[in-house]
Amino acid sequence: MSTVIEQAVEARLIASDPRVQIVPAMLGYDREDPFAVRMVFPAPATLEGVEVSWAFARELLEAGLETSAGMGDVRVRPYGFDRTVLEFHAAEGTAMVHIRTSELRRFLKRTQLLVPVGQEHHYLDLDEDLTELLRDAC
């Protein structure tokens, strides 16, 4: 069984320009980092022309499907019947994308089959993480 889940999603980039731009994006989940999900935007979809990856809590994505969630760099909230808004805040500005809520639910269901909610701590390798932390401190 693979320990990594990737799912392509269609993101609608919301900008001050009235046109809605469709950008490809990839949601990712790795059992070795059980609390986090990643969203990757390919180089052509970014202002800088380089791939951009955001990591945030799986719990934040789950909560944001039902109500506004997040106070930091990533915020998630429901929008309309079957859309969810993800906001990514950086020094360069804010990017807002709409994604079908059904796609996010399907992705989260797959992550929960791999690592059930509340069981994440069983998938952490604290000894390895501590060794790596101490190696960098020396």
Rank of each mutant, 00 (worst) to 15 (best):
T3K: 15
V4P: 04
V4G: 02
I5V: 13
I5L: 15
I5T: 08
E6C: 00
E6P: 00
E6A: 08
E6V: 12
E6L: 05
Q7T: 13
Q7F: 10
A8L: 08
V9K: 02
E10G: 13
E10I: 15
A11M: 10
R12F: 07
R12W: 07
L13H: 09
L13S: 06
L13Y: 06
I14R: 04
I14Q: 04
S16W: 06
S16Y: 04
S16L: 06
D17G: 00
D17A: 05
D17Q: 05
P18G: 07
P18K: 06
R19A: 13
R19D: 10
V20Y: 07
V20C: 04
V20H: 09
Q21L: 14
Q21H: 08
I22R: 05
I22T: 12
P24R: 13
P24A: 13
A25R: 00
A25F: 02
L27P: 00
G28Y: 11
G28I: 04
D30I: 11
D30S: 11
R31Y: 01
R31S: 10
R31E: 04
R31N: 02
E32N: 07
E32P: 01
E32L: 10
E32K: 14
D33M: 08
D33L: 09
P34M: 06
P34D: 04
F35Q: 03
A36L: 13
R38P: 00
M39V: 14
M39K: 03
M39P: 09
F41E: 01
F41G: 02
F41C: 04
P42E: 04
P42I: 02
P42M: 08
P42V: 01
P42R: 06
A43M: 11
A43T: 12
P44Q: 09
P44D: 02
P44G: 07
A45N: 09
A45K: 10
A45P: 05
T46M: 03
T46Y: 01
L47W: 09
E48T: 15
G49F: 06
G49A: 14
G49L: 12
V50A: 14
V50P: 03
E51P: 01
V52R: 15
V52K: 14
S53E: 10
S53L: 08
S53T: 13
S53P: 05
W54E: 04
W54I: 08
W54F: 15
A55T: 11
A55C: 08
A55W: 12
F56Q: 02
F56E: 03
F56R: 06
A57S: 10
A57N: 05
A57D: 05
A57C: 06
E59F: 12
E59N: 10
L60H: 14
L60I: 15
L61T: 09
L61D: 02
L61M: 11
